[in-house]
Computed example of a mutant assay.
Amino acid sequence: MSRVLAGRYELLEQIGEGGMAVVYKARCKLLNRYVAIKILKPEFTKDLKLVESFKKESQAAASLVHPNIVGVYDVGKEGNINYIVMELVEGKILSDIIREEGPLITKEQ
């Protein structure tokens, strides 16, 4: 896979998928760093309510700043592709960690 989105994000590989979107690992050619790009699935691009919900999600996420929350770097639309560019966090998926090691212990427990 070697597609460039918005002239600067080189999509490298799919790293996740949810109900409405697919997440890719990409390289920002402008800043030479790896990012995660969440792209709304094509079957939802004609549903204006879902597209608006996707935009609101990006705005809400961008307003949050905390060491335990991924940062939002960019949001955009190219043709019928709606996307959110986020900080890439390498490592295991939380659901895999819980499955392998059991529930996480919090300080209150």
Rank of each mutant, 00 (worst) to 15 (best):
M1V: 15
S2Y: 09
S2H: 13
V4W: 06
L5W: 02
L5T: 00
L5N: 03
G7P: 02
Y9M: 03
E10S: 10
L12W: 08
Q14M: 15
Q14P: 10
I15L: 09
G19L: 14
M20L: 13
M20A: 10
A21C: 14
A21T: 07
A21Q: 13
V23I: 04
V23K: 01
V23T: 07
V23F: 04
Y24Q: 00
Y24M: 00
R27A: 01
C28G: 06
C28Q: 09
C28V: 08
K29F: 10
K29A: 07
L30Q: 15
N32R: 13
N32F: 12
Y34G: 00
Y34I: 01
V35W: 04
V35L: 02
A36S: 00
I37Q: 01
I37S: 02
I37W: 04
I39A: 02
L40K: 03
L40H: 07
L40Q: 04
L40G: 00
K41Y: 11
K41G: 05
P42A: 14
P42N: 13
E43D: 08
F44H: 03
F44I: 04
F44W: 09
T45N: 08
L48R: 11
L48Q: 10
K49G: 07
V51L: 07
V51E: 03
V51S: 05
E52I: 12
E52L: 11
S53H: 12
F54Y: 09
F54A: 01
F54G: 01
F54C: 06
K55H: 07
K55G: 04
K55L: 12
K56C: 11
K56I: 12
K56W: 12
K56G: 09
E57A: 11
E57F: 03
S58H: 03
S58I: 04
S58Y: 01
S58K: 03
S58C: 05
Q59S: 14
Q59P: 04
A60L: 09
A60G: 13
A60T: 13
A61N: 06
A62Q: 02
A62G: 06
A62F: 01
S63I: 11
S63Y: 08
S63N: 12
L64Q: 13
V65F: 15
V65M: 13
P67T: 11
N68K: 07
I69G: 06
V70Y: 11
V70H: 09
G71I: 06
G71W: 05
V72E: 03
Y73H: 05
Y73F: 14
D74G: 00
D74H: 06
D74C: 05
V75N: 12
V75K: 05
V75D: 13
G76M: 07
E78Y: 15
G79Y: 06
N80E: 15
N80D: 14
I81P: 02
I81D: 01
I81Y: 01
N82W: 09
I84E: 06
M86F: 01
L88N: 00
E90T: 08
E90P: 01
K92V: 08
K92G: 04
I93F: 15
L94D: 07
L94G: 08
I97D: 07
I97W: 05
R99D: 05
R99N: 06
E100M: 05
E100T: 03
E101N: 12
G102W: 00
L104I: 15
L104E: 13
I105F: 11
T106R: 15
K107F: 15
K107A: 10
E108M: 05
Q109Y: 05
Q109M: 14
Q109L: 13
Q109K: 15
